[in-house]
């Protein structure tokens, strides 16, 4: 078999493995959906009486918050699925993969694409609730929505892979990922909009997560995006470009880390 064939087979088999394991763990599927759902309903209802988007009286908080929760679903799933790198190392499965003919680049790609697919499926399932938040499937712009979600998933999974490869304990992994990614998510405009000219708005400009939330928000609203919705004023393609760059950088980091022998 050609080298390319070997690499594709390695990637394919690792993606398939993640999907089979995902389908088998119903509690994980339900947990990953239920938690953000409760979060969305509780925070969303609690905030709805006080939340006012500047210049927009019709946008309720449940609606404003929904795109951010989709990104949170993707974020949590990416953290959980890439954590299996640590479990695989402890269970010995990882070394069996590493001594197979496929290269480590394919191991990274296979794991990241597998985890991304799982995260996408989870995000997609939550997306089905969009009509309850006031969105209409007919008016959505699917290209920025799908591109935004795909590259966000890949970025987060590759980042998760790099951290999981580097660390030895699942507890430590959780702490690192939560410390880095949750603040980024909160400061992305997912929970509240950034006032123009504030430090928050400045952070939002350099925060890759705000581009993810913006792409999802833009995709959900389509052509009827209300003003003041986005943390920073970007074009749709600059958002996708930033997410592609983030995904590429994270994947390169994961590959670089994976070549470190331990």
């Amino acid at each position: 078999m050609s080298v390319l064939g070997q690499e594709l087979a390695t990637i394919g088999v690792l993606v398939r493995r993640d999907l089979v394991r995902f389908a088998r763990e119903r509690s994980r599927v339900i947990g990953a959906l239920l938690q953000p759902l409760i979060f969305w309903l509780v925070i969303g209802s609690g905030m709805s009486s006080t939340f006012r988007l500047p210049g927009q009286s019709q946008v309720g908080y449940l609606e404003y918050f929904f795109p951010g929760v989709i990104v949170m679903v993707v974020l949590f799933t990416a953290i959980f699925t890439t954590m299996s790198v640590i479990e695989d190392r402890h269970s010995g499965f990882l070394q069996a993969v590493l001594v197979a003919p496929g290269s480590r680049v394919s191991v990274v790609l296979g794991k990241c694409l597998g985890s991304s697919t799982v995260a996408l499926v989870q995000g997609g399932m939550f997306l089905l609730l969009a009509p309850f938040a006031g969105f209409h499937f007919g008016q959505m712009q699917w290209l920025p929505l799908c591109a935004g979600l795909c590259f966000t998933c890949l970025s987060l999974c590759a980042l998760g892979f790099a951290v999981a490869w580097w660390l030895d304990s699942t507890g430590g992994y959780h702490v690192v990922m939560s410390l880095v990614l949750l603040p980024l998510w909160i400061l992305s405009g997912a929970m509240f909009p950034a006032p123009a000219g504030s430090a928050f708005a400045l952070i939002a400009r350099v925060n890759p997560m705000s581009y993810a939330v913006a792409a999802v928000r833009r995709g959900l609203y389509g052509a009827v995006l209300p003003a003041g919705m986005l943390a920073a004023d970007h074009s749709v393609w600059s958002e996708v470009l930033v997410l592609i760059s983030f995904a590429l950088a994270s994947t390169l980091l994961a590959v670089r880390v994976c070549f470190r022998k331990r």
Binding site: M1, G5, Q6, A9, T10, G12, V13, R16, R17, V20, R21, R24, E25, D88, S91, G92, F93, Q95, A96, V97, A100, P101, G102
Partner: peptide, 24 residues
């Protein structure tokens, strides 16, 4: 390997199929 290196959450046949694919 000295320690087990199988995927406990897959079946016996799935583990073998996975290995067959990895080993081309």
């Amino acid at each position: 390997f000295q320690a087990p290196s199988l995927d406990g959450r897959l079946t016996v046949r799935e583990n073998l199929a996975l290995s067959a694919a990895l080993q081309q």
